[in-house]
């Protein structure tokens, strides 16, 4: 509980650092030091950060293994995109935040519907149920128009003309919001309850923790933020096709969480950035790209089996702690 910096100072410092980051990014983009291509890469990185941080709630904090992030993403993306296309009476930039939240809520509703029955059961049903859910969503999006004779998702022929409202700035603002909310959640009694379930279900229950309630809560939060990531993805691409939400997409996000360290939010953020940006830099190696990428993963897993960050969080205290340790080490050497 004892922290070196008190709450308002910490919060101000965090917000300040983040504002500086946004300013710097925009400056570099305006000066064309970061080109259009890498601006896009950074936007994808931001979206992946949101997806990884939210999956980490379900895997790292709750200890379940959902394999259907792509499904919740698709729900968020399509919901937000369909509304964005219909809304013409306000500017897209104004409608976007509202549509993102609606996309998140739609995904959260799906999370509730499939999470509640699956999480009531003892055992690992979540993996298979979310896997099935994601496939069902993809098939429904693909076929709903022809089945019902409507034009909603445009199935395989692409949902086009979605306003491209995702920007470097708003994508990272959402990263910041999601990270803030997740860290606030994990510092509350609700977050502790979720962690206790991961550590020991039987003990948690005997301490008066309602397992179904907190498992479902964590799962809904995961689905909600994943839906938000999906909505930003739609605003980034401007065009949606159900094939973009396949099983491979879910696995990509899971790899980010595992590499970053299950149970570490900052680990998820760092690893999402690395795993988005490194393959782009490796484009130079073209054919060997995927081999290098796989090797990188294997090397990290050999030397840091618990992921880059383990289950620790990166913080200012950690930095000062590291600094002190170093200073101590040097002193003892003398």
């Amino acid at each position: 509980m004892k922290k070196k910096f008190n709450l308002p100072v910490r919060q101000l410092a965090t917000v300040g650092a983040f504002a500086l980051f946004l300013l710097l990014g925009n400056f570099l983009m305006a000066k064309k030091i970061i080109g259009l291509y890498y601006t896009k890469v950074l936007m994808v990185a931001a979206i992946n950060m949101i997806l990884a941080v939210s999956l980490n709630i379900a895997t790292g904090f709750l200890g379940q293994l959902p394999l259907g992030s792509a499904g919740f993403m698709a729900v968020g993306a399509y919901t937000s995109a369909i509304i964005m296309r219909k809304v013409t009476f306000v500017s897209p930039a104004l409608a976007f935040p509202v549509c993102i939240i609606i996309g998140g809520l739609a995904a959260a509703l799906c999370g509730f519907i499939i999470g509640l029955p699956a999480l009531r059961l003892k055992g690992d049903y979540i993996a298979i149920i979310t896997l099935g859910f994601a496939e069902i969503i993809r098939i429904v999006i693909l076929n709903i128009d022809s089945a019902l004779g409507i034009t909603l998702t445009y199935g395989a022929s692409n949902l086009k003309n979605i306003p491209k409202t995702t920007t470097f700035t708003n994508a990272f603002i959402w990263v910041f919001i999601v990270c803030y909310l997740v860290s606030a959640l994990m510092k509350s009694r609700h977050g502790r309850a979720i962690l206790s379930i991961r550590d020991n279900e039987i003990a948690a229950e005997s301490c008066g923790i309602n397992l179904t309630y907190y498992k479902t809560m964590a799962f809904i939060v995961y689905a909600f933020f994943t839906g938000i990531g999906g909505a930003l993805y739609a605003g980034y691409l401007g065009i949606l096709n159900p094939s973009g939400f396949s099983f491979a997409k879910s696995i990509d996000i899971l790899v980010m969480v595992v590499l970053g360290g299950m149970g570490s939010m900052t680990g998820s953020v760092i690893s999402a950035a690395v795993l988005t940006i490194v393959p782009e830099i490796l484009h130079a190696f073209s054919d060997y790209r995927m081999i290098v990428y796989s090797l990188l993963l294997i090397v990290v897993m050999i030397f840091r089996p618990a992921g880059l960050m383990g289950n620790k969080e990166f913080s200012m205290d950690m930095l000062t702690g590291l600094f002190k340790k170093k200073a101590k080490g040097e002193r003892s050497k003398k």
Binding site: R192, L195, S196, N200
Partner: peptide, 16 residues
């Protein structure tokens, strides 16, 4: 116990 959690957090779960 909740092995990965701190001693205080273990008690705080009891106080949940």
């Amino acid at each position: 116990l909740f092995k990965e959690m701190s001693v205080e957090d273990n008690v705080l779960i009891g106080l949940h």
